[in-house]
Design a protein around this nucleic acid. Sequence first.
DNA 1: AAGTAATGAGAGCAGTGCTCTCTCATTCAG
DNA 2: CTGAATGAGAGAGCACTGCTCTCATTACTT
Lengths: 262, 262
Amino acid sequence: MPEDRIEAGIEADVDALSAAAASRPRTPRERARAQTVADIVRLGREHLALHGAAALSLRAVARDLGVVSSAVYRYVENREELLTLLLIDAYNELGDEVDAAVGAVPEADFDGRFAALGRAVREWALREPSRYALLFGSPVPGYRAPAERTTGPGTRVIIALIGILDGAFRAGRLAATGRRSPAVAAGLAGDLAKIRAEFGLAVPDDLLARGTLAWTSLFGAVSFEVFGQYGPDTFTAREELFAHHLAVLADVAGLPAAGAAV
Amino acid sequence: MPEDRIEAGIEADVDALSAAAASRPRTPRERARAQTVADIVRLGREHLALHGAAALSLRAVARDLGVVSSAVYRYVENREELLTLLLIDAYNELGDEVDAAVGAVPEADFDGRFAALGRAVREWALREPSRYALLFGSPVPGYRAPAERTTGPGTRVIIALIGILDGAFRAGRLAATGRRSPAVAAGLAGDLAKIRAEFGLAVPDDLLARGTLAWTSLFGAVSFEVFGQYGPDTFTAREELFAHHLAVLADVAGLPAAGAAV
DNA sequence: AAGTAATGAGAGCAGTGCTCTCTCATTCAG
DNA sequence: CTGAATGAGAGAGCACTGCTCTCATTACTT
């Protein structure tokens, strides 16, 4: 069963990626194998960052690896597999940076944490536009990310965001403002109840839906900037624009400005 | 100058696309040429809708056209050129649907118009995910849309949105709510002043920035849904979720709910 | 040390974008 | 109405892609 071996090798590599070295020494062969897969992922990441996802070529990676193209198929099932690896890799890097940025702000400063999360997403996206595009842009042609391997890393940002909002609510510092707090329809309420149960949340429906909006809106703003939807010179003060957006979004989500009483 | 001829042919075709028939009869040869380009665009649109932008192949289009691959290069400079044509085509279709949806609501019902715009965008995007992805997803590998040909059609939605918001403001029915109305920093104020001048708007800075946020947020929500970021079953009541988002976004932009006094 | 399993090379298939040349039909000018 | 200019299509070809298959070698395991 060659597939099983390949799977095992990849698992080992993902471990190696996230935990610096292979957790278990294993056999020397498996270590060498994990190293090669790690090299492939590294080279793939470089190509991805340089030329974009659709231009990612296994043959080019093979050339950089100093090996004939068919050899890489010993380590990576196909191009999709490599894309999946790079997807996980990118999700984790983004997740790490977001976690670090959020963690650097005092836990009780919910608004500060929210802003830190947003800025971390934007800064990573601007620094790694091609990899950001792989995660949040149009799905690659015919490529569908295997949910069982990507949902974990892929949900880290929204989980961090949910954590902030739920923490704020439990601390009594989350409340909707504005003229409207639209009624939550029955079907949506069901979805939100499932989410609340899954993550053990206390946030009520309207605020949870607002949090979802803040989430999509954050990525909407970042995507427009990264994908060039703002045009070349319509907005020059993009950092200020984003800061304004973040402040409004915090308000949308129900977070009070730092120091403000609810 | 073969390029000039090609350009002329394409212009003729774009006319034909938007105005049903060629405005001027011209020579029979030019009519045949325009027809062929229109066929290529039509086939390209089908392939695009079916297999996505990155899988769009000039050779496949040529096959469907019943012609050898090199022949299509008589009509389309290269693959990018075809993508640009399809981009314009899609922008215009979206623009048409948005305009129609907005126009179907009384001019004074600003909130209704805003909601109609949002729903039109979402419905078109869900109906044409590949074409939506071409417009608002990750830029195609190495492809950069030529601004001089795409900015016109590409700005129709935001212009429609701006029209609604400015109309509401002039009617005295636009005002920010929420605990925060963040100060607009100097650089951003400059950008907004330019926009205000360019489109002859009356909307003040904070509201204009909020309108921008409503715009990016609208597309953020649609993109997340179209690109599968919500996961397969996290949200099942997506229409209700979107309606909730739209209502909150209208509030963010400063629009009063229908019937509500400001 | 012998046997086995992983590895890499190489050839090959089908597809891609794109260029070039050649032929043929259409169109236009004189 | 004839001859030249022009446009269109075919076909070959180049360089590239993903991917499969076979074959020899290498490295590890028992």
